[in-house]
Amino acid sequence: MHGGATAVTAGWLVAAWNSAAVHRTTILLCTLALWEAISRLGVVDPIFLPPPSTIVLAVTEIFDDPRAVAAFRVTGLELGLSFVIAAVLGLAIGIPLGLNRFLRDAFLPPILFLLSTPKAIFLPIFLILFGIGVDSKIAYGAFSAFFYIVDNVVGGVGLLEAKRRRLARAFGAPLRHYLVDIVIPSALPGIFAGMWHGLRQALAAVLVAELFASDSGVGYMVRIYTNQFRTDKTLALVAVVSLLVIVAGSLFNRLEVRMNRWRAVAHT
């Protein structure tokens, strides 16, 4: 009896030891524990690096702070609008570029160059033109995300096979049907990748712009809290934003898998 129970426990332990997920969780927990310890034992000043438990408490605190709640709303609005603008422009320019070799050869290289430059240097132009408020964040966010979306949309449309183009011609597809029934479904993987990169880039850009100069938003609150030496609240903001990004990422992945199911079936 006793021996059997031990064997079962041992078997379970071996299985746990062999699981990568258990290893990962252990690593994460150990890191948090170590962090907690060095901060609590005063190896580093908790004002500079507060322990994780304090940050968790700070998360509840910032949600009681109406300024912080408003900041999330402002940043959310900026992100949403800038993403929509970038997505519409990205598709409107990416699809013709993907379909037409001449347009692509002429205008993709400069777009790729701008994609690789630090876009933050253009922030002054947006701030001077649109002011310190939400307008400049929306414009700059859309500007930054646009290049990522165009790049991926062009790549996606490039996947359109010659035989599908020929099909559309032979069956007399009008432009609208050609785009909706043939080009866009063919380009869906690229469009999806573009939307995800664009969304991430728009978020980073909005935060960057808020950190640089702003009077509202999450980036603004990060500056305020840091200036008040409330590192716990700063890290709480960082944690919430990161969590949102991770959740959004997994949602996006799931959506992509759903929409591309026919593709997955076709390849197995």
Binding site: F48, L203, L237, V241
Partner: peptide, 20 residues
């Protein structure tokens, strides 16, 4: 784990690094 780290928007860390 590394992929997770890659998704975190580290831009917001800069004020902290300035402080540290």
């Amino acid at each position: 784990l590394v992929a997770l780290g890659y998704t975190i928007p580290f831009v917001v860390f800069y004020p902290l690094l300035l402080l540290w």
